Simulated scan of single mutants.
Amino acid sequence: MTRHFDDLQLGSIELFCLAAESASFTAAATAAGITPAAVSRAIGRLEERLGVRLFVRTTRQVRLSDTGHAYYQQCRQALGQLVEAERQASGGQSLPSGRLRLSVPTPYGYFRLLPILEPFRQAYPQVQIDLHISNRNIDFAEDGYDLAIRGRTPGDSSLIARHLEDAELVVVATADYLRRAGTPQRLEDLAEHQCVQFELPSSGRRVPWSFQVEGRQVEIQTSGSLTCLEDFLATVIAVKNGAGLMQAYRFSVQQELQSGELVEVLAKFGGTSRPFILLYPEARHMPQRVRVFVDFLLRHHQDLARAR
């Protein structure tokens, strides 16, 4: 086999990936325990070898060029495979380590994931977690994420989809709002109410409300003068302050329902749910840090299911 890299070149690739992840030569230097000038020289050697510009440099920031972004994705995957190969060769004795990048929607992030992250961090202290909480869809190849949690299975066949849970939906309002506007008894009554809307960032479409009617699931487009974009939890805050009715995940309003701050309505049409699905790219060698997090999350949801 012909040798393509020497130790200096492999080190330069590692420094390049550090700089790409932090968008800073200084931060990469701090992480590596060297000077920013040494990082700059290493990346300069790479750019000279490749004959391309990997970073666009200004007086205030550095950012990856289009070529640099594509090169980073390949290098990151290759370095991850090297780490995994070392782990397997050493009998799997090394602890999971490295940066785990995860994208989750706001309700799941706040009410499901954040409450259980600390036990994972204590079990795997060498894993660094970058958590992206947003209802916008991410692109694994372009954005460099390891995992994502979404509400539907994508059409991309290159992604592995693992079902986490079916989250029950419930329509809620404050008692004060119901005293003022009346309590809906039929689905048709929703037309007479302020129904707080949420608009999907990916499509610009308002999310329909879902109900069970005579054993079948139906979706209804409601209307109201307030629409929340980006953050689904903004609708819950609005409803808690008397803005109207909202269909939310039961787990996101459970405390308010128990305390009486919110009241459930149209319960006889309830029982519908929406799924949460764990997604990740198909890979022959999954990095250890990703595998242990996937196992951790699946075990957590199995425990949730048994507790119900």
Rank of each mutant, 00 (worst) to 15 (best):
T174V: 10
A89G: 14
V239R: 12
T58F: 13
T30Y: 01
F198A: 08
G260W: 05
L95V: 06
F55T: 11
L229E: 11
R250C: 09
M246W: 06
L278M: 01
C195Q: 02
L304K: 15
Y110K: 11
I138M: 13
G44R: 05
V83M: 03
D139I: 06
G260H: 10
D231R: 13
S40G: 02
L200G: 06
Q258R: 14
P184W: 15
S203N: 10
S24E: 03
S252W: 01
A78E: 03
Y249C: 04
L178C: 14
R216W: 00
V196M: 13
L46E: 05
D66Y: 05
V290Y: 02
E261W: 04
A37L: 02
N137V: 00
G68C: 02
D146G: 13
L187D: 03
D189K: 06
T235A: 13
R63S: 01
V263W: 10
Q221F: 13
V56Q: 07
Q221G: 06
Q247C: 12
P281N: 08
A161G: 10
F16M: 13
G92E: 00
R53Y: 01
V196C: 10
V171A: 12
P107R: 13
L178K: 14
Q194V: 04
G244S: 08
L95D: 09
P115A: 04
L46S: 07
S103I: 03
Q9I: 11
A42K: 08
D130S: 10
A167M: 03
P96L: 03
G182R: 14
I34G: 03
A148W: 01
R57S: 05
V52R: 06
H285N: 14
G182W: 12
V265D: 09
R45N: 04
P154V: 00
L102G: 11
F16K: 13
N241T: 05
V172Q: 01
E168Y: 07
T174S: 12
E86H: 08
Y108A: 01
